[in-house]
Design a protein around this nucleic acid. Structure first.
Lengths: 343, 343
DNA sequence: ATGAAAGCGCTAACAA
DNA sequence: TTGTTAGCGCTTTCAT
């Protein structure tokens, strides 16, 4: 009965072969654009395929050593604007190709991650895009040893041996801090990201570097640890507000924690930006919607997805041999959440 | 060289068979939970598989007549909060199962849609979820004739012969209108959705029904045609504002067009809700973020995705025979964009 | 309870 | 340029 479901009478290359009067390997060749096929034969085959409504069976194709025309993508969740944006970029770029997406959401379940990777490398897809911020080195290593095409997105593989796309985290953070300084702020709080991540570390460095360049002494109590989640921004801000000398501005390592900061501020009866400036990082879509509109550092998330796809396809179609690392530029987006400190 | 990519030395059931000293068909049975396998044999096989790091090849599995463990999902785009929410729900529910998602984004390219459907029915996936608002009857008919499991989401198949999940469009619209009426509004503008869609039609009906029940004469000039897009809401509102007798409130058939309405209002120097009340429909995530926070009718989008998945899996695992149609309840979410009309 | 063997639809040598 | 053939890894009869 299982069989019944499968046994659709969908036409196969054999049917097309019969219809067009050639062998089915010729059909395969004609369909796959193999060069040494007589034009008239190819034409016949194409017509027969058309007529029969032939649709290739990707599984068979892939099993037999061809392509699956599927790109695997590994993400932690879909409920995060940041991830969603990247996925959107990926999807958009993929539309131009004839690849489709097979989506693996790990929901941070570590065991699943490596199973997924294994299954993809196994043939489930022709390439893999990893949007997982914290890839486990175990399967990353496995991946590296294969020839299997993959690209890391916004995730630094410290060994620099993987294809990768990310953004200028250090510069972005520097610019955000500088912007605040130029606005006149001297006491600038910083809410860190998840410090295990390279992006978080870079952003912190950018912040301290800017302070340094403007000869503003670094005050450790102004650095509150967060983890890129909204709640962490909320808590970190509470700590910052409990300080004897409060900051006049807060730079959150990402927009989500900036939202948390605004929440905490509001709860204490403080207005943004009148009583406190807040700047974020990422520029996820919601940031231009919330009130006040968030001033932030734009990370071209969708672009990152697109570029990653391009790199991956190049790799798959072996148009390129080595692996590349691409870093896209961030830029300051001035909106309504920052202003000079109060006199 | 193509071969080289494929020829990963990944273990197959043959390897597992060798390792555990049984035939490979026994391995298959043991792995698939076939009941007549001696417990000790199953144990041996499982251990060998574990030891070798065996990962089943889904393509082969599916080709041979088994499951692909993939669910196909057809969406028009990912750039729409409405779709994104449904997808999120689907993804979340799927996590509980061991199915993965294969995503087909049509970007409204009609030709692609039927190819995708064909390819899925062909074996690329075990079931199909359609989030396409306007399914082309051609492949829908094809689908109906197959035994292939599929569920329509928020899309009325008028023939009522498909499994489907949607929400109470009529009631929601009625409630929105009633809310406005109870606030004291008498001139209530309505921005329609894309009128080809059942949901749009139902919402319009709900609106007129409420007016009717409260004995407010229906004024055709207060109904402006839209198409569920933000721009259409913007334009429709401009028309409404050009009326000699302007409405005091606007009910937009979805949140996106409500955003457009607010935009147009703002452009004319009108404040929401002081000068004009606006109510939407959907309650996409952004609606609680924008300023003013949008009062709207919540459609449980993620729930709809989840329910659709449950129905589909039941169908696939033939725990259930027929097809069901489920309608989930909408509900009014009062936020900041409505208030009584000015005296 | 298990093994042997026949495909699933297709690609890619290998011949011709 | 085209046909023949051998698998890809697996499920599923059919035997035993």
């Amino acid at each position: 009965m299982q069989k019944d479901d499968k046994k659709t009478n969908a036409p196969t290359i054999v049917d097309v072969a019969r219809e067009s009067g050639v062998s089915y390997s010729t059909v395969s060749r004609a369909l796959n654009g193999y060069e040494f096929v007589k034009p008239s034969t190819r034409e016949k085959v194409l017509q027969a395929a058309q007529k029969l409504g032939y649709v290739p069976n990707q599984q068979a194709r892939s099993l037999a050593g061809g392509r699956s025309n599927l790109i695997g993508i590994l993400v932690p969740t879909l409920s995060n604007g940041y991830v969603a944006e990247i996925v959107r970029g990926i999807d958009e770029e993929l539309t131009k190709s004839n690849y489709n997406l097979i989506l693996y959401t790990t929901h941070r379940h570590h065991g699943k991650e490596s199973t997924y990777v294994a299954s993809i490398v196994n043939g489930a897809a022709d390439g893999l895009l990893l949007v997982v911020p914290l890839v486990s080195t175990s399967y990353l290593n496995a991946l590296r040893q294969q020839t299997f095409p993959y690209v890391l997105i916004d995730q630094s593989d410290m060994t620099e041996t993987s294809a990768m796309v990310n953004a200028t985290n250090w510069q972005g953070a520097y610019e955000a801090t500088e912007y605040l300084i130029k606005l006149g702020h001297r006491r600038i709080g910083f809410i860190t990201g998840l410090m295990g991540l390279n992006s978080a570390a870079e952003r912190l460095k950018g912040y301290t570097a800017a302070l340094d360049d403007y000869e503003i002494p670094l005050r450790h109590e102004l650095i509150a640890e967060g983890n890129f989640q909204q709640t962490s921004g909320y808590r970190a801000t509470q700590k910052l507000l409990d300080l004897n000398e409060r900051p006049t501005a807060i730079f959150a390592a990402n927009d989500l924690s900036a939202y948390g900061a605004i929440e905490a501020l509001r709860e204490r009866g403080m207005r943004v930006p009148e009583d406190m400036s807040v700047i974020g990082f990422d520029d996820i879509p919601q940031s231009s919607l919330i009130y006040p509109k968030l001033t932030t550092i734009r990370q071209p998330l969708d672009q990152m997805g697109r570029v990653a796809v391009k790199m991956l396809l190049e790799h798959i179609e072996q148009r390129v041999q080595g692996m590349r690392q691409v870093t896209l530029a961030t830029r300051l987006i001035v909106r309504d959440s920052c202003r000079p400190p109060q006199a």
